[in-house]
Design a protein around this nucleic acid. Structure first.
Length: 716
DNA sequence: AGCACGCCGACT
DNA sequence: GTCGGCGTGCTC
């Protein structure tokens, strides 16, 4: 079609790097035109009368810029990055424009002229002179959008906090002089630790995957890496999975170099204070940022270090479109902004192992001697042990766990990690362990009260006369016992000891050194002032039995995070894990070898050609929509197609609402999901192809939508 | 997405 | 003869 060519030429914002020359040529050719035509004929800014604008309400096919005329009165304020309001969607009636609604947007660039053939509308208003989407942040957003086949405006929405006029009026503090280089402190426990700090202090860009030793020192070590970067006169950014861990690093950095060098960007500060802190970073007044996920975009000036803690934590995955992951955003920043990189954790993800395997990052790990000195003693109780154990039948606690707890409670607090909150969420056959299902609707059976019959979690029917469909067994067993019931049982078992619980809606940050039973769900474990005397990790097999590619990695991660809060074995710190000692993640925990575990997982992924050894994307929608999409898309050579398979239907009460942005078919409709797989180097090409096809479909007014997801979770 | 213009059926 | 169906296309 000839019309498409013309449209392409008018598409202002989509120039690839090579297209810039073309734009230059066009601009030169059009020099004949003195000034861009406008609608009102008002006086325009003299030097650069055109503003290229990213209109905020970004539909995917509107992922392009629009040019507006800059009235002379707005010349000074209409700088790149400022928020503006523009009239958009007006129509032309007899030489006059009518209608058009006001939209928010950002000035992306000031120009001498436009490559749009028609007359330009003027900017309606410069909302504020604050350049919040300055060119470096815009470039980052562009790269993230491309990486995830998403719309630029969606990423900008994640990266730029909403405007708070009051915060903008407050001046930011004067920047402090750079702090002196810190001493290496406990980094000396890691072979190359001091050298890493020195490299940061020289302003180099060392890249490392850091396996932190168990114990309380990692927040300070992370803070020292930031301090060393600041000492070199460069900025630093650390992203942590939750506000609690961010607060620990914040305290450590303040202790190391004093307050004023950094800000915390976390949700618990209100929106106005958060925006004020963000502005102090954007204005270059503050050079270091500690924060949670959204801080990954923080526009730190002259960034020298990006650090990420515990990248296996699911909160690092942004739930909003296009669902970027903090690890990938920080990797992009490290590459493009030429910064040092520090991926730290008690355990390692396969992605971390791959960064080392590919040679891009160096391992930063302690010697076996240091590991032995820091790690607690790990003991296991397998199912076989439990079956032989008479006491375990009566109480839910095997006798080893009982003995360890009793002894440890004379020395300090004991941590009890239970996989989920609530009562007894799921039941299974006691004999064959098949999950117990409702005979009417096959929903999972749940036990909500301590006594009484189990009920179906979906339809609510009582299941008084349940028997197992698989083996005919008729006894139920608690598959996952929640925090509350465990707390009750243990409280009865140790009546003199205070029981404290920490779960999703009431998280304790710390507990004291006095003997106590501390019941916590994974991720909510309080830090004990002097370390726990012992920890019990219950119901390990429930964690491991999840049908997920990451089940092993995730189980090890959760266990190790809890075990890292326990005193070293030399101080009688003991961990009892209820899981089969022969299982790989259990062995890795016993030997305290998370690196080895990650390397083996990586090798397995390579064999199966699963991420991160391959890049994957999913296309989801009705069968017709998926087929239509596939007809349109021009995939890079060598793309594997896996599927399509029917999309698992969410249970009525179960996974009713999934993660935000996760597409769910309307009731009664069957959707399917197609997986696409390319070799590691072809990820960008795949994303570009998918985005192009998606744009085409939406532009053509496709009735049935398709949903594109790069790096889909929960595969396998 | 909105919101128009545009070319074919049942109404005053 | 018109009012209006929502099919295609544009928005600086």
């Amino acid at each position: 079609m000839s019309g498409e060519n013309g449209q392409d030429q008018r598409r202002a914002g989509q120039e690839a790097p090579g297209g810039e020359q073309l734009a230059l040529i066009r601009a030169t050719v059009r020099k004949t035109r003195a000034k861009p035509r406008t609608w009102h004929g008002a006086a325009l800014a003299e030097g650069l009368p055109v503003a290229r604008v990213l209109v905020d309400k970004g539909l995917l096919h509107l992922d392009q810029f629009f040019d507006y005329a800059v009235p002379a009165a707005m010349d000074a304020e209409a700088r790149p990055g400022v928020r503006v309001r523009v009239r958009f969607g007006a129509r032309v009636v007899g030489g006059r424009r009518e209608g058009g609604t006001l939209h928010d947007g950002f000035i992306v660039e000031r120009r001498t002229d436009s490559d749009y053939a028609g007359p330009l509308a003027p900017l309606a208003q410069v909302l504020s002179a604050e350049p919040v989407l300055a060119p470096p942040l815009l470039a980052l957003c562009r790269r993230v959008a491309d990486r995830y086949a998403g719309a630029l405006a969606d990423v900008v929405q994640l990266a730029v906090p909403p405007r708070m006029a009051r915060a903008e009026r407050k001046p930011s503090p004067e920047p402090l002089p750079y702090p002196p280089a810190p001493e290496p402190g406990s980094w000396t426990r890691y072979g190359t630790g001091p050298a890493y700090l020195q490299a940061l202090g020289r302003g180099d860009t060392p890249r490392a995957v850091w396996l932190a030793l168990p114990g309380p020192h990692w927040p300070r070590e992370l803070a020292l890496a930031m301090a060393a970067t600041l000492a070199a006169g460069r900025g630093a950014l650390a992203v942590l999975p939750d506000g609690r861990s961010a607060a620990r690093v914040d305290a450590a950095l303040t202790e190391a170099i004093g307050a004023g060098h950094h800000v915390m960007l976390t949700a618990d500060a209100g929106p106005e204070q958060r925006y004020q802190r963000w502005l102090s970073v954007s204005r270059g007044a503050v050079r270091a940022v500690i924060g949670t996920r959204a801080a990954m975009f923080a526009p730190v000036a002259d960034l020298g270090l990006v650090a990420l803690w515990d990248d296996g934590d699911s909160s690092h995955a942004e739930p909003h479109a296009p669902q970027p992951h903090a690890r990938d955003v920080l990797l992009l920043r490290a590459r493009e902004e030429r910064t040092a990189f520090l991926l730290g954790g008690i355990t390692s993800t396969v992605e971390g192992a791959q960064l080392v395997d590919s040679g891009w990052a160096l391992p930063l790990a302690a010697s076996r001697d240091e590991v032995r000195a820091a790690a607690p003693l790990i003991r296991t109780v397998g199912d076989g042990d439990q079956a032989r154990d008479e006491a375990a039948r009566a109480a839910r606690l095997p006798s080893l766990a009982w003995q360890v707890t009793k002894e440890a409670l004379t020395r300090g607090p004991v941590l009890v990690q239970v996989p989920r909150r609530g009562y007894v969420p799921r039941l299974a056959c006691d004999r064959c362990r098949e999950p117990a299902r409702c005979s009417a609707c096959a929903g999972p059976l749940e036990l909500r009260e301590q006594t009484g019959t189990p009920h179906c979690g979906w339809c609510g029917r009582p299941a008084a006369d349940w028997h197992c469909q698989e083996c005919g067994g008729f006894r139920l067993r608690a598959q996952v016992v929640g925090a509350r019931r465990t707390a009750e049982e243990l409280g009865r078992a140790f009546p003199r000891v205070p029981v404290r619980t920490s779960g999703r809606d009431a998280v304790l940050a710390t507990v004291g050194a006095a003997p106590a039973l501390v019941i916590a769900t994974p991720g909510a474990e309080p830090v004990a002032d002097e370390g726990y005397a012992a920890a019990l990790l219950l119901d390990g097999w429930a964690l491991l039995n999840r049908p997920d590619l990451r089940a092993g990695e995730e189980a090890l991660r959760r266990w190790a995070l809890a075990a890292a809060l326990v005193r070293p074995a030399a101080e009688n710190g003991t961990v009892v894990v209820l899981a089969e000692a022969t299982l790989r993640p259990v062995q890795a925990l016993v030997r305290w070898d998370p690196a080895g575990h990650a390397v083996r997982e990586l090798a397995e992924r390579a064999e199966l050609r699963f991420p991160p050894v391959a890049r994957m994307a999913s296309v989801t929608g009705t069968p017709a929509a998926v087929a239509d999409f596939m007809e349109l898309v021009r995939l890079p050579a060598g793309t594997d197609l896996l599927g399509p398979v029917p999309l698992p239907v969410a249970g009525p009460s179960g996974a009713g609402r999934g993660r935000a942005g996760a597409p769910t078919p309307p009731p009664g409709e069957m959707w399917e999901r197609l997986l696409l797989r390319v070799p590691p180097g072809a990820g960008a090409a795949l994303a570009a192809a998918l985005k192009e096809a998606q744009v085409q479909r939406v532009t053509r007014g496709a009735v049935e939508p398709t949903f594109i997801r790069i790096d889909p979770p929960d595969i396998g």
